[in-house]
């Protein structure tokens, strides 16, 4: 039996912007079924690494594989679901229902001029249920609260039946109650549906409370799947030393 492929395999990636080093020899291996929180200060390279994983920008060197494929191929096959930043505050005048938005998650799979078939309708139904927004499907997306909108975008990402869900600061603009419910939903998608989850956050508490593994990125990366090891890592202490007193969770 061959060794199980990594969900995300980033090897020795470097990236600089305007001759400033953003990512310095970053290596990250994410096992299938992992729930990883990616932490780091603003400008630490979190969003850049995520864009490289999504295949939206090319690194200067190094390699990226998503279940053994290039990010572009994985994206085209719908293997990666992506939920961008600041979705909660989006355009409230856009005339579309929740169902139309979630259906648009099937667009890359249906292709140009393709028909929306029964299998597509089934995937949309499943995604609406899994994200807990089935009852909102006829509502206009502009009329939803920040937390509801965020769930709609999860449903949209799930419509392509992805193996990995990548979320960039997913709870920006979402109130505290909805935030908790949101991370519970992510946990459920991870454990029940076996989806590998990677979310970016700048909030140490959120990462250590919800994720089963945590990574800290500040040009260089450190990854730990034990909360104790993570919080005592010198790189993490350097950045978040003062926050320690607030973080006590039981995994």
């Amino acid at each position: 039996m061959t060794k199980q492929e990594l969900a995300i395999d980033v090897q020795h990636v470097n990236f600089s912007y305007n001759s400033e080093n953003v990512l310095d020899d970053v290596t990250l291996a994410v096992e299938p079924g992992a729930y990883l929180g990616l932490l780091g200060p603003n400008g630490g390279g979190k969003t850049t690494l995520m864009k490289i994983i999504l295949g939206l920008i090319e690194p200067e060197n190094g390699s990226i594989k998503i279940f053994g494929k290039t990010p572009q191929d994985a994206r085209r096959e719908g293997k990666i679901g992506y939920v961008p930043q600041r979705i909660a505050q989006g355009d409230s005048s856009f005339p579309a229902t929740v169902e139309e938005i979630v259906r648009s998650g099937r667009t890359p799979i249906i292709g140009i001029g393709g028909l929306f078939r029964q299998s597509d309708a089934n995937a949309v139904e499943e995604a609406l249920h899994a994200a807990g927004v089935h009852h909102l499907r006829h509502r206009l997306v502009g009329q939803l609260s920040g937390g509801e909108r965020q769930k709609v975008f999860i449903a949209r990402a799930l419509a392509s039946r992805p193996k990995i869900l990548i979320l960039d600061e997913p709870t920006t603009g979402v109130d505290i109650g909805a935030k908790e419910a949101f991370y519970t939903l992510l946990k459920e998608l991870n454990t029940k549906h076996g989806i590998t989850i990677v979310f970016i956050s700048h909030d140490l508490e959120v990462v250590t409370k919800h994720a089963t593994c945590a990574a800290c990125l500040n040009q260089k990366i450190v990854v730990h799947c034990s909360e104790h090891a993570f919080l005592h890592d010198p790189e993490v202490r350097k950045l978040y030393g003062d926050s320690f007193s607030f973080v006590h969770h039981d995994h």
Binding site: L54, L56, Q72, R75, R76, G78, I80, Y82, P84, G90, F94, A96, I101, S104, G105, T107, P108, F153, R156, S160
Partner: peptide, 13 residues
């Protein structure tokens, strides 16, 4: 899809 969110559409392939 692109009218709704260009970045999201790009990331979707």
């Amino acid at each position: 899809s692109i009218s709704f969110d260009e970045e999201l559409s790009l990331a979707s392939g």
